[in-house]
């Protein structure tokens, strides 16, 4: 494992530099406003979840960060760069990896082609050996058509392909969605391993149990706003507080 991350304790993380700072972010799909002034930040090496009901604006938040949603106001600062106003490909090149909810595996590409499609943008990405060690299934099925994989394997592929690129900030949209519990557990372990390797991760998650298993902090989103931010310890101590937001 990466020594850089091993020594890092939760306290150290709390004082780590802010990697992504979102300030008063609003975003629109065509004419309808979906985000209404979101503010939160993500620290270097942290694993942060966005939790909230369906339609709260979690996915839109990720899509705004990577610029798929182009109409946005406010500020998204990644290290020293302002992302609002930049095109998606420019944002990606700064070192932000995005794994969409629908996984977006390409059916006209083989598993291998899917995996190696994203170009290496900067140093520090996983090597091919590391990738295949983390995702042995993908090696076995490298020649298959991308969409012939099982749901879990497609999810692994969608995560794996952004690890080679040298992106240090990963935006993962509901990787546990629609998967069997045993696969969810496996993906949880992979995400924890990525965190241990020093990746900074923003995870959109509806599955509270999954979120608790992996995260440092939780940002609760409701109607396009941040209504609460709590550490994992706070979440454990007061599950009722979050469950009331989620309406479960």
């Amino acid at each position: 494992m990466n020594s850089l991350a091993m020594a890092r304790e939760p306290d150290a993380r709390a004082s780590a530099a802010v990697m992504l700072k979102i300030d008063n972010l609003s975003a629109w799909y065509a004419e309808s406003k979906v985000l209404h002034g979101m503010s939160f930040d993500v620290r270097e090496g942290e694993l942060l979840t966005l939790i909230g009901r369906n339609g709260a604006g979690k996915t839109t938040t990720l899509r705004s960060i990577v610029g798929i949603v182009q109409k946005r106001t406010g500020s998204i600062r990644f290290r020293d760069e302002e992302l609002v106003g930049k095109r998606t490909f420019q944002i990606a090149r700064l070192g932000i990896g995005y794994c969409p909810e629908e996984r977006a595996i390409f059916s006209s590409l083989s598993v291998r082609e899917n995996l190696f499609l994203p170009p290496v943008l900067r140093e520090g990405g996983m090597t091919d050996e590391q990738l295949y060690a983390t995702f042995p299934n993908l090696k076995a099925r490298a020649g298959s058509q991308g969409t012939k994989l099982s749901g879990g394997e497609q999810q692994m592929l969608a995560i794996a392909r952004i690890l080679r690129t040298g992106s240090r900030l990963l935006l993962l949209d509901e990787p546990s969605e629609g998967l069997a519990p045993v696969v969810v557990k496996e993906i949880g372990e992979i995400i924890q391993r990525l965190k241990a390797q020093g990746f900074t991760i923003v995870l959109v998650e509806q599955n509270l149990r999954f979120a608790r298993m992996v995260a440092d902090r939780h940002v609760v989103v409701e109607n396009g706003k941040v209504v609460d931010i709590l550490s994992n310890a706070e979440l454990e101590a007061d599950m009722g507080r979050v469950k009331s937001y989620l309406g479960v």
């Binding site: 798929i68 990606a92 090149r93 390409f106 006209s108 590409l109 994203p118 943008l121 690129t165």
Partner: peptide, 18 residues
């Protein structure tokens, strides 16, 4: 492969920095 991928999902290909 870029071309085929962009035929399917141009936005996603763009999130790879293309």
């Amino acid at each position: 492969a870029y071309l085929r991928a962009a035929n399917e999902k141009p936005q996603i290909v763009e999130t790879f920095g293309i």
